[in-house]
Write a protein that binds this DNA or RNA. Structure first.
Lengths: 121, 121
DNA sequence: CCGTATCCTATATGATACTG
DNA sequence: CAGTATCATATAGGATACGG
């Protein structure tokens, strides 16, 4: 039933306060996964190339430090948007990929883009 | 042309780096408008009731302080998502409303909700 | 190559008191 | 009623050095 939620049903649920803010609001949860200075930019790079290596990400994202790239990736991984595969070679080799969960999010970004093209100067 | 951008055209634009991160990415811009602890919750309340008064918002949003409510509303106003009308009466009376720009964003939140219902545990 | 550890700074958020 | 002013605190982000 949830999967087939119509737009009209959704607006009614909002008004009925079905999505309280106490951890039950999907929009709040998703926004929190994308908070911070670097998260979306990392996802953006992985939309272009996935899997992608740690060093490649750092090179493509101007200004990011090891510390921030690592912590951002760890959080995205914890939220299930990104997966990490480590190859135990010398030299070490790690690949990050978008998960299906993240890929299913692309239409949302598409909708955001269409909105932005109309409403952002 | 931008308004009729198809999903396929959009994914291609991403790969072509049309939306660089230097202020040209609509998703990044929109996400920045929704950053912070209280912004979405304020918008949520205004989806339920609009126009709504300052005191009503403060009452409905548990834990928010005058300071944060004011600064969040000012930023939402600056970004054009919320409008403010002041009635010069005694006692003072101010009404906040969602703008058309914000209302056009509702389908985006709907898409985010549908995603969340499937992918957030 | 892919990080972690440590320390430091900047920004966001919060508490309290007060005013047009 | 709807804020502002001020000060305090917490969290995010950044710089640098070093390790498996």
């Amino acid at each position: 039933m949830n999967e087939n939620l119509t737009y009209e049903e959704w607006t009614q649920r909002v008004k009925d306060r079905i999505y309280t803010e106490a951890g039950n609001c999907p929009v709040t949860s998703l926004l929190s996964m994308l908070q911070g200075k670097w998260k979306f930019q990392i996802i953006y790079e992985m939309c272009i190339q996935s899997p992608i290596r740690f060093g490649e990400l750092r090179k493509n994202i101007e200004g990011i430090t090891n510390t921030m790239l690592t912590s951002s990736l760890r959080e995205l991984e914890k939220d299930g948007l990104v997966s990490r595969i480590q190859f135990n070679e010398i030299p070490p080799h790690v690949e990050y990929s978008l998960t299906e969960k993240k890929t299913a999010l692309l239409p949302v970004f598409y909708a955001m883009t269409k909105w932005g093209l109309t409403y952002i100067p």
